[in-house]
Design a protein around this nucleic acid. Structure first.
Length: 332
DNA sequence: CTTATTTGACCATA
DNA sequence: TATGGTCAAATAAG
């Protein structure tokens, strides 16, 4: 606004433009996310986001900012061994281990629940322990296990696979149920709420772990923890969602709750901060948080912090997506 | 250093 | 035998 003298430095203007683009991108992604929600408040949230988008567009128009999209994908972070150099482990295994008797449940034992979501976020922290390519599907299947599996013995597992028809969505099959009493992963909002009565009204309250029996196709998720996305590789990138966030905002897992209002604020505000995101480079199915090194570990005193992901962490967001009617006590 | 993620190998069931 | 589910070492990043 203010087409006045135009004293704004070029670089600054460019930065602002970039911010706008990023913000718009984030808001768009958020809107896309909201569109999939069944929650009755979704429309409201969508409306809000739409408003944000509208304003952003307006601002961009005013500034003559194109939507060139800042899809800057830096080859920097090449997480995992995706790089290339792997000295082919020729150890222990082939040596002479014929006495290795593994005894774990074979074939899948019927999923307790199946869901098709756009995000891998489902309210729990998962540790990816494997990925396999299924011949039936063009996309590999990722295997996750509850982070507390190795420690509290939570047997909850899930398999994530891209939808053949809608690569942008994932088919998540759940096996077993959570027997863990999440420590610093989920119940953080409860105490927080007590400490801040002011916002307690709009906060999420995790009463119990989702132990729903009914909720067949709809409500199944229980609470929220983090939201992760980004990265696409399987050969063809079909993921159009890319989130950018500031790590400062969600650095600690202890404060992953906020109003939708604040959420949007965060998106808009953070969008410009981290333009290059930490997007990795390989792995297509990801979303669960990894845990310690396979099996060997067991010392982990506490679950990994959602700090490592490239997406952004939000507590309320997930609950919205979780379409659980018990978690929210917000009144639009 | 610790945590997180990747990837190949192993193995059990259909 | 083929398929797919899991383990486990290694690797990369924070």
């Amino acid at each position: 606004m203010a087409p006045s003298g135009g004293d704004v430095p070029v670089e600054r203007a460019a930065a602002a433009a970039n911010d706008l683009v990023e913000a718009r991108d984030g808001a768009a992604a958020l809107r896309a996310f909201l569109l999939e929600l069944d929650d009755q408040r979704a429309p409201w949230a969508q409306r809000v986001v739409d408003g944000v988008l509208s304003r952003l567009s307006s601002a961009m128009s005013a500034l003559d900012v194109g939507g060139a999209a800042a899809g800057g994908r830096s080859p920097a972070t090449g997480s995992g061994s995706g790089g290339a150099s792997r000295p082919q482990q020729s150890v222990s295994y082939s040596s002479g281990n014929t006495n290795k008797k593994r005894s774990f449940s074979r074939r899948s034992q019927r999923p307790s629940d199946k869901k098709i979501t756009a995000t891998l976020e489902d309210g729990h922290v998962w540790r990816k322990y494997g990925q396999k390519e299924i011949q039936n599907s063009p996309y590999p299947r990722s295997y996750y296990r509850c982070t507390h599996s190795s420690g509290q013995g939570c047997k909850a597992k899930r398999q994530v696979q891209r939808s053949e028809t809608d690569p942008s969505k994932h088919v998540i099959a759940y096996y077993g149920e959570h027997t863990c009493r999440d420590h610093s992963t989920i119940p953080l909002a409860v105490h927080a709420a007590g400490a801040a009565p002011d916002r307690a009204n709009n906060l999420i309250s995790f009463g119990h772990s989702g132990a729903n029996d009914n909720a067949a196709a709809t409500g199944a998720a229980s609470s929220s923890q983090y939201l992760a996305m980004g990265r696409s590789t399987i050969g063809e990138h079909q993921l159009s969602t890319s989130w950018c966030t500031s790590d400062d905002m969600f650095s600690s897992s202890a404060g992953s709750f906020m109003h939708v209002d604040e959420l949007i604020s965060a998106v808009v505000g953070s969008a410009g901060v981290t333009s290059t995101a930490t997007a990795g480079s390989s792995a297509l199915d990801r979303g669960g948080l990894g845990g310690m090194a396979g099996g060997g570990g067991g010392n982990a005193s506490f679950p990994p912090s959602p700090n490592g992901l490239a997406g952004f962490v939000v507590g309320s967001l997930g609950s919205i997506g979780g379409d659980d009617d018990d978690l929210f006590s917000m009144d639009p």
